[in-house]
């Protein structure tokens, strides 16, 4: 059953010509942000361990996260977390059949992008 369906389904895979709709952009960013967070897990755990190990290791933690390049990198990871968080809540609601209409789904994907970016900016300003 699944095989016959996949054979007749039209395919359009020209990566440079595909124009993803907003919900599609939110969806692929959910995957990208999740993958990025996973790949940075050892680094984040190392920072977590240093921040809680001892007053001395807290000092080296502060020095590392105080570096401008580290701040930009960590701000990127904060965006990744916040986007994954907001998009994840949207997907949970979609799973519960809330907001499935096309117009609502478009609006909620705009909201996900807007809220996660706004929170990233607020956090960035607060922590800079």
């Amino acid at each position: 059953m699944a095989n016959t369906a996949s054979k007749t389904r039209p395919k359009f895979l020209h990566l440079t010509e595909i124009r993803l709709p907003l919900p599609g952009i939110v969806s692929i960013l959910h995957r990208v942000s999740g993958a990025g967070l996973f790949l940075c897990l050892p680094l984040l755990l190392w920072l977590f361990a240093a921040s809680l190990g001892s007053p001395e290791s807290f000092e080296s933690f502060s020095a590392v996260v105080g570096h401008p390049l580290a701040k930009i990198f960590l701000l990127g990871l904060m965006w990744a977390y916040l986007h994954h968080f907001c998009a994840g809540i949207r997907f949970l609601l979609l799973d519960m059949h809330k907001g499935l209409e096309l117009a609502t789904a478009r609006k909620s994907s705009v909201a996900v992008l807007a809220v996660s970016l706004t929170l990233t900016v607020i956090l960035g300003v607060k922590l800079w």
């Binding site: 897990l41 050892p42 755990l45 977590f48 809680l52």
Partner: peptide
């Protein structure tokens, strides 16, 4: 890796 990470996190938390 994920199992190791969880052990690492637990070690950090229970040394506090």
């Amino acid at each position: 890796a994920l199992i190791g990470y969880l052990g690492w996190a637990a070690q950090v938390l229970w040394r506090l």
